[in-house]
Design a protein around this nucleic acid. Structure first.
Lengths: 181, 181
DNA sequence: GTCTATATTTGGATAGAC
DNA sequence: GTCTATCCAAATATAGAC
C-alpha cells in the first residue's frame, strides 16, 4: 500500500512503481485512480484522518480527560510503528519547498493546537486546573513533545519511552500552569 | 551551498546539479571532491558539528546553567531558519530505510541524551534540584520539545514561540522532578 | 582539479488498445 | 478500469580530455 511506501521512504523517494507493485497493478493503473503522485499522497493522508476520526468517535473527552488521553495515545503508538513513521517523516518533509503535504500539515497542526488549547481552557473552566494564560505556548509544547519523541523512538526504541516522557511533561506542565500564567 | 539545498528540499530531492550550480562548478566537479551524494551529506553534517562545537567552546556550562542555556538556543534558533530546517528535515528523513544520515542522527541523539541527562544529574548533585530518578525520560522529553517545536515553527512562525514553549516545559519539568521520581 | 560527454537508471506522466 | 507502450525529463555516477 501507498501508506507503507511513504512511511518507509518518504514522499520523494517512494516510487509509483513500487506502490503499484505491492498493490498488484501497474504504475499506469495507479495513475488512473489518482491524477498524480501528489494527489495519491493527499488521498493517503485524508484516508488516515477519516480512519482516526471514525475510531475516536464523536464522544471526545473534555478538559483534563482529553489531556490524559494523550498519554494513552503515546502508549498505543508504540504498537503502531508504521503510522508513527508516516507522520514523523511526512510532517518534517512537508516543511520543504513546495511539498504537496505542506498545507495539510499546516491545517493539521492548527487543528491540534486548537484542540489542546481548548482542552486546557476547559480544564481551567471546570476547576480542574487553576486559571492561566499563555495556554497557546503550553499547547504547542505538549504537541511538540509527542512529535519529537516519535523521531527519537523510531531511531532508538530501547532508549525512548514515549508514554513515560509524555506523561512526565504533561503532568509537569499542568502542575506548573497556575504558577506562571 | 549543499547545506541550503538539503535544508530546502531534503536529501532525496536535492540534486547534485543544483548544488553544483550554486557553487559555481559542474556536477562532475562536486563528485570529484565527494565520492557520492551520500558522502556529501555526511560531510555537510560533520562540518556543521565542527562549526557548532567551535562556537560553543570548551567551557560548557554545568547543571542548571546548561539546561537554562537550552532556552537561549531556542531563542537564537529563531534567527537561523536555515539551520533549523536542515536538522528538522534531515533528522526525520533519517528514519527512512537505508538513509545515509541514519547513523549520524542515532549518534547525535545518543550524545544529546547523555548531555541533558548528565546536566540533570549534575544539578541534583549540586543541590540545584532535588534528587530524582528517571532522568532519562526527562532528558528525552526536553530534547523532544525543542525538536517538535521546530517543525511547528517552520510551518507557522507566527503561531509558535519556541523560546517561550521551551522555557515553560523546562521550568515545569525541573519543578516537578522532586515530586515524581 | 575542473571540465565535456556520456552511460545508465529511474522517475512521473500520457496515449491508446482491450 | 487496467493494460502495454512510450515519452520525456532528471538523476547519479563514470571516463577521459585539458
Amino acid at each position: 500500500m501507498a501508506t507503507e511506501a511513504f512511511a518507509a521512504r518518504g514522499y520523494n523517494k517512494a516510487s509509483l512503481a513500487e506502490i503499484a507493485d505491492v498493490a498488484g497493478v501497474t504504475q499506469a493503473g495507479v495513475l488512473h485512480h489518482f491524477r498524480s503522485k501528489a494527489q495519491l499522497l493527499t488521498s493517503v493522508l485524508d484516508l488516515r484522518d477519516a480512519t482516526d476520526i471514525e475510531q475516536l468517535g464523536p464522544e471526545r473527552p473534555r478538559g483534563l480527560a482529553f489531556l490524559r488521553h494523550l498519554v494513552d495515545t503515546a502508549r498505543r503508538n508504540t504498537e503502531r510503528e508504521g503510522i508513527v513513521r508516516l507522520y514523523a517523516v511526512l510532517s518534517a518533509e512537508s516543511v520543504t519547498d513546495d511539498h504537496p503535504a505542506q498545507e495539510y500539515f499546516r491545517a493539521r497542526y492548527a487543528g491540534l493546537r486548537a484542540m489542546v488549547a481548548d482542552a486546557l481552557a476547559e480544564a481551567c473552566e471546570l476547576g480542574e486546573l487553576p486559571a492561566a494564560t499563555d495556554l497557546r505556548d503550553a499547547a504547542n509544547a505538549i504537541i511538540a513533545v509527542m512529535d519529537g519523541l516519535q523521531v527519537q523512538w523510531l531511531l532508538a526504541p530501547a532508549e525512548v519511552d514515549m508514554a513515560a516522557s509524555t506523561d512526565r511533561v504533561l503532568g509537569a506542565v499542568l502542575a506548573g500552569l497556575g504558577h506562571r500564567g
